[in-house]
Amino acid sequence: MKEYFLILLSTVLVNNFVLVQFLGLCPFMGVSRKLETAAGMALATTFVLTLSSACSYLVNAYILEPLDIVYLRTITFILVIAVVVQLTEMFVHKTSPILYRVLGIFLPLITTNCAVLGVALLNIRHDHSFMQSLIYGFGASVGFSLVLILFAAMRERIMAGDVPETFKGPAIALVTAGLMSLAFMGFSGLD
């Protein structure tokens, strides 16, 4: 139990995928303009990341390794992720058409969210078991969701500010992301 808690703590705060490992920056910048969209994206990514992290473990352990074709790992994982994303897309389309429209292009783009592939590959690198992979993926997505939502709320506030002309838009967003990353360094050495 303690081990799972540590994995969760590590992925959510200490080694946060966005602010410490700099993975998944595209949706972090792309869908953080509004809090509601960000919350939707966070939910969708959480679902995809957790599921794909479990699926890629199964694929690796029961297909790639027995057949001795681990050199196909990256491309197989991309395929697995694409299938999971497609599933999520169909699900969101059916259940919440508004969210589907709001997320727009970013929903299929979860496929290219490097955090998703990153988690799948890191699971193999760290020799995680099935349960560990699941927790690792879930923790990564919770960390991603947390900073995405916090960042979106901050950006809404910053947009109302008197930002110098040259720094408007993505520039000040990147400065903010840098300062957030600075704050998250306070967690270093926690585990």
């Binding site: 939502i149 709320a153 901050m154 704050a183 360094m185 306070g186 926690l190």
Partner: peptide, 29 residues
């Protein structure tokens, strides 16, 4: 407390304030 006791830095006030600063808009919301 968490940063002081388990973290890598001796005092955590600076980091704690920045971390809650970045959470403040969400808390307000």
């Amino acid at each position: 407390y968490v940063i002081r006791v388990w973290g890598g830095y001796p005092d955590g006030i600076g980091f704690a304030v920045l971390l809650m600063n970045l959470a403040a808009p969400t808390i307000d919301y």
